[in-house]
Design a protein around this nucleic acid. Structure first.
Lengths: 93, 93
DNA sequence: TTCCTATTTGGCAAAATAGGCAAATAGGTC
DNA sequence: GACCTATTTGCCTATTTTGCCAAATAGGAA
């Protein structure tokens, strides 16, 4: 039961959400699509770090990307993730 | 913006959800409350491992516990977490 | 008190994750 | 071809997480 692949699968998605920078990225992508360099300006870390965070989110199926010339644009695939923000925000520590 | 404490806080909760065993525990607690030894039977790992997973979930505010004699019973505090399961389940890899 | 069961805690080693830098890749322009 | 910009990948180190074992703690019962 514990080894049901559904828990493996869901924990992979939760892991993708388990980083402040990635949550911030999803919040940004909720408004509009961004290219990597614009996200990098908002975030402030090395662009390779941003790229890796985006790869994690994409691998989890949360975002998608398309290329325009030499830029890669990312957009949100699963807006329901943001609804969960509200639920989680109400949990008090 | 990235350093907004809300992202720190939410990522902490997401981290608590980012493990197959802990997701399984929440699924069990959705039905009824369990004591540690009953959870251990369902999960099959060392009981100290179960106890630590429970501590992670409790620290995140997702579950609560109360003691009856020498047993500790745990129950779910945030059923909305399970609604998120449905959202996440629909994300395709 | 001693004994028994239930649970937590500490320590440790293995595995996973994060982030920076440099190099590689991709696409365009000159 | 050489050059420039945008992005990804590889490598490395530091940090965090995981899970087991043993020890400690808590609460009853004999």
């Amino acid at each position: 039961m514990k080894d049901d692949p559904k828990y493996q699968y869901m924990s992979q998605i939760m892991k993708a959400l388990a980083h402040p920078t990635r949550l911030f990225i999803l919040d940004l992508l909720a408004e509009k699509e961004y290219c990597v360099c614009e996200l990098q300006k908002q975030i402030g870390t090395d662009i390779s770090t941003v790229s890796k965070h985006l790869a994690v989110l994409k691998n989890a199926g949360l975002i998608s990307s398309h290329k325009v010339n030499n830029q890669v644009w990312y957009n949100l695939l699963c807006p329901c993730v943001l609804d969960f923000y509200n639920c989680v925000s109400e949990i008090k520590n």
